[in-house]
């Protein structure tokens, strides 16, 4: 095989691989949209109907409990994670910490970022057992917040890093304290930070492994902060292979709701990051 044939062959292979990946991923989305949409669009009310008393057996009612559970868990968790990750990222990027300290903390953040969600789930469950509590909304919030923390810190850190040094220098030059300078840095990095927060929110709403043991697999409406709850991914996980077609159909409908929510969030975050990159000082020029 001469070098030009080889060149053509591998060029084709690279194109084919990219087409395969895009095709398979498009298939995943369209299967979810089609199978879920067929159930959901014929009866959108399942989303706002509370489950019946024998929900797992006959699929009576709807899955409002999971929708509400997802919202009640992920919204507070995201708030906690924003507070923690923003503080950590500011600490890493500002003059509060030395370069060496930042590097060490970054190493731990990287490790946390790669930690499988199930480990967080097991960790929080261990805590639940230790304090003698039961699975509940509260521990679901904690588990998701821990899961989101490294993800959001990474994006926030990146956004803060892209703020040009001139902003910081100008602020110090006017006599600002480090705290005031940090606030200004945050303001100029805001679009990137918001994009990161949205991605963290989307990841939190889609994750099942962290909440499976911590929020529970309740089939009732969430009763209170210390009562068991469930989320959409758990519902899909539990019901996708059910023998009852009605119960299974609810898993499809829930996956339709979930994929629409996640895709909307991610696309919004990408658009936001792209749109404001031009205006942010020192933003990406590409």
């Amino acid at each position: 095989m001469d070098r030009y044939t080889e060149q053509r062959l591998f060029g084709l292979l690279a194109r084919a691989s990219a087409a395969l990946v895009v095709g398979v991923l498009a298939m995943v989305i369209s299967v979810t949209l089609y199978r879920g949409g067929r159930v959901f669009l014929t009866d959108p009310a399942v989303m706002i109907t509370p489950p019946g008393s024998r929900y797992m057996l006959d699929g009576g009612g709807g899955f409002l409990h999971a929708v509400l559970g997802s919202i009640f868990i992920v919204v507070p968790a995201t708030a906690i994670a924003i507070l923690l990750s923003l503080s950590t990222a500011v600490f890493l990027q500002s003059d509060y910490s030395s370069e060496r300290t930042s590097e060490i903390i970054n190493m731990f953040l990287n490790v946390l970022w790669g930690t499988p969600p199930i480990v967080y789930g097991v960790f929080v469950l261990t805590v639940i057992i230790a304090v003698g509590a039961q699975t509940s909304l509260f521990f679901g919030i904690i588990a998701i917040a821990i899961f989101q923390y490294p993800i959001m810190t990474r994006y926030t850190d990146e956004a803060l890093r892209s703020v040009p040094g001139a902003v910081k220098e100008a602020s110090y030059g006017l006599g600002s304290t480090r705290f005031e300078t940090a606030r200004i840095t945050i303001r100029s990095a805001l679009p990137g930070i918001v994009a990161g927060v949205i991605i963290g929110f989307a990841r939190g709403i889609g994750d099942a492994a962290t909440v499976l043991f911590t929020a529970g697999r309740s089939t009732q409406m969430p009763g209170g902060l210390f009562e068991p709850a469930t989320t959409l991914p758990i519902l899909i996980f539990e019901q996708a292979a059910s023998f009852n077609a009605e119960v299974r159909a609810h898993a499809y409908a829930a996956s339709f709701v979930l994929i629409i929510a996640v895709l909307t969030l991610i696309i919004a975050s990408k658009l936001l990051a792209g749109k404001y990159a031009r205006f942010a000082p020192g933003g990406r020029h590409s």
């Binding site: 492994a209 996980f237 994929i259 991610i266 696309i267």
Partner: peptide, 20 residues
């Protein structure tokens, strides 16, 4: 497109796996 897809939840892949 590939970037966006990296954020699709695992349960969705599991469900499509069951179906397809």
């Amino acid at each position: 497109f590939i970037d966006v897809l990296a954020a699709i939840p695992g349960v969705i892949f599991g469900l499509v796996g069951l179906i397809v």
